[in-house]
Amino acid sequence: MIRHDLLKTLIPVISDQLVVCNIGAPSQELHSLDDQPTNFYMLGTMGLASSIGFGLALAQDKPVISIDGDGSVLTNLATLSTIANNPRDNFILLIVDNGSYGSTGDQPTYAGRRTSLAAVARACGCETVIEVAAEDTPQALADALAAKRMTVIVSKCDSGNVQVPVITMNPITIRERFMAAVAE
């Protein structure tokens, strides 16, 4: 199962949640599958979806799901230490680990080789870390939301992209409508 198909299976679980989605192809895929005001699409800043989502979880009490990629998490490993040392039970980090930099041509990441992001998250001090196959991700995410406990989910899926339109919405519009959804 590739990331697009994984995201499609997550829609029933995430469509009414605050979601901060990773840069590039993941944001474009989520936007094409289920555009919601509660989705914050990263159009820049590789590696910061987890940090921005975590900051949002610190600032308010609604559940927040950050959908990040293995390549992006590898560019900002410090986010895992920050998350571990400041736990917020309204935060879930979903790492879509396809072993590649999907937005730039599927070049392999080290997560596709010897580096285990689940082991890294545990070593940083994250207490609830789950590694699942792509097809088991919707249930793992639903369980994490129900548990109301900070959770890092590493979802192992295949590399590959689906051609979807770019997001033409202005970044300011994305921000404003997301902020309005957070305030509701």
Results as ranks from 00 to 15, higher is better:
residue 1 M to Y: 10
residue 1 M to Q: 08
residue 2 I to M: 02
residue 3 R to A: 06
residue 3 R to H: 05
residue 3 R to E: 03
residue 4 H to N: 11
residue 6 L to Q: 03
residue 7 L to F: 15
residue 8 K to P: 01
residue 8 K to F: 05
residue 9 T to R: 11
residue 10 L to R: 02
residue 12 P to Q: 05
residue 17 Q to P: 10
residue 17 Q to K: 15
residue 19 V to M: 08
residue 21 C to G: 07
residue 24 G to T: 07
residue 25 A to L: 09
residue 27 S to W: 09
residue 28 Q to G: 01
residue 31 H to P: 01
residue 35 D to E: 14
residue 36 Q to P: 04
residue 41 Y to E: 09
residue 43 L to Q: 14
residue 44 G to D: 15
residue 45 T to N: 14
residue 48 L to Q: 13
residue 49 A to Y: 04
residue 50 S to G: 15
residue 51 S to P: 01
residue 52 I to D: 06
residue 57 A to F: 10
residue 58 L to A: 12
residue 59 A to C: 15
residue 59 A to E: 15
residue 60 Q to M: 06
residue 63 P to I: 11
residue 64 V to Y: 10
residue 65 I to F: 02
residue 67 I to S: 00
residue 70 D to K: 07
residue 70 D to L: 10
residue 75 T to V: 10
residue 76 N to P: 01
residue 77 L to E: 08
residue 81 S to Y: 12
residue 82 T to Q: 15
residue 82 T to H: 05
residue 84 A to K: 11
residue 85 N to L: 11
residue 88 R to H: 11
residue 88 R to K: 14
residue 89 D to N: 15
residue 93 L to I: 03
residue 94 L to V: 05
residue 97 D to H: 02
residue 101 Y to K: 10
residue 103 S to N: 08
residue 103 S to P: 07
residue 104 T to I: 12
residue 104 T to F: 12
residue 107 Q to R: 03
residue 107 Q to I: 04
residue 109 T to Y: 07
residue 110 Y to S: 12
residue 116 S to P: 09
residue 117 L to T: 07
residue 118 A to P: 10
residue 123 A to N: 12
residue 123 A to V: 11
residue 124 C to H: 12
residue 125 G to P: 14
residue 126 C to Y: 02
residue 127 E to Y: 02
residue 132 V to Q: 09
residue 132 V to D: 07
residue 133 A to S: 13
residue 137 T to Y: 00
residue 139 Q to G: 07
residue 142 A to D: 03
residue 143 D to I: 02
residue 145 L to E: 05
residue 146 A to K: 06
residue 147 A to M: 01
residue 148 K to G: 13
residue 148 K to Y: 13
residue 152 V to G: 03
residue 153 I to V: 10
residue 153 I to Y: 04
residue 166 V to F: 11
residue 167 I to R: 08
residue 169 M to S: 04
residue 170 N to W: 08
residue 171 P to V: 03
residue 172 I to C: 01
residue 174 I to P: 04
residue 175 R to H: 13
residue 177 R to Y: 09
residue 179 M to N: 12
residue 179 M to W: 06
residue 180 A to S: 08
residue 181 A to M: 11
residue 182 V to K: 09
residue 182 V to I: 13
residue 183 A to F: 05
residue 184 E to H: 15
